[in-house]
């Protein structure tokens, strides 16, 4: 069936084109949790282009984590639509969600490594569980371990590594499947400022390969130093969206 093209037809096509170009697109998204009066996100409109590096800033409880969880379809919006890679997540059936997540890498403040596996095994785990063959794993994992700067530490256990090194392992695991998007939820939150710079260099390196990076952070120094796009959330609303921005004067 062909939909009649009204006067709004050309406008709709324009929006569609923009959505196609954007790798992540929040279309008037509101997200409320049960038993909470104030929604975690309210009428959020953000489009993130392919290859962009975006800082998501704002105080605790401003909705940064909800923003990231919506991209992963760990939550669904109460209103509005989230598009990832041109696909509306609300139309994505549950059994296809794993395929979405294979194209998104994730890094967290608390690293989330498996304590009983060494560096190589931790990174390889991400490929094993999506059924990649052994030969491929043996080829790719050392490359990524080198990329994040852990040469020669493949057989260390996580508790033998420093916090910065553990986060590098987590980044390697997130990136080993060459995702389209890398989400980082306060990746430097548990790490001292000097080591954080090293982590940021790794993320920047990953961004240069064409991967879109979305990083939620509290770290003003890093945001100010990098001069990338900054989206600021406050009480679930976007209060600032600046390319080449800083953390903000208020802090």
């Amino acid at each position: 069936m062909v939909r009649p093209l009204g006067p709004r037809g050309s406008f709709a096509r324009m929006v569609l084109n923009r959505r196609d170009a954007a790798v992540i697109h929040f279309d008037n998204v509101t997200k409320g949790y049960k038993n909470q009066n104030r929604p975690a996100l309210q009428h959020v409109n953000v489009a993130i282009e392919k290859g962009e590096f975006l800082f998501l800033v704002g105080p605790s409880g401003s909705g940064k984590s909800t923003f990231l969880r919506l991209i992963l379809k760990e939550e669904r919006p109460s209103q509005g639509h989230v598009h990832v890679a041109g696909k509306d997540l609300s139309k994505l059936s549950n059994w296809k969600v794993p395929h979405l997540r294979r194209r998104i890498g994730c890094v967290f403040q608390d690293f989330r490594l498996l304590p009983n596996k060494n560096v190589f095994e931790n990174v390889a785990f991400a490929l094993e569980v999506i059924g990649k063959p052994r030969r491929f794993i043996n080829k790719v994992v050392p490359e990524v371990i080198d990329l994040v700067g852990l040469e020669g530490k493949a057989h260390r256990m996580p508790d033998e590594l420093s916090g910065g090194e553990q986060q590098r392992v987590a980044i390697a695991r997130a990136f080993v499947n060459r995702p389209m998007i890398l989400l980082a939820d306060e990746p430097t939150g548990n790490i001292d400022p000097a080591t954080s710079i090293g982590i940021m260099k790794v993320l920047d390196r990953i961004n240069r390969t064409g991967t879109t990076v979305v990083m939620a952070t509290h770290d003003a120094a890093i945001v100010d130093a990098f001069r990338k796009r900054v989206v600021e959330l406050e009480d679930g609303r976007v209060v600032r969206d600046q390319s080449r921005g800083v953390y903000g004067q208020a802090y």
């Binding site: 997540r101 998104i104 569980v129 695991r173």
Partner: peptide, 17 residues
């Protein structure tokens, strides 16, 4: 739960988990 959490995160299919 650690393992399964990571499996979900990196996109392991439900059958695999």
């Amino acid at each position: 739960r650690r393992e399964t959490g990571i499996m979900r995160l990196v996109g392991a299919s439900n059958t695999y988990i």
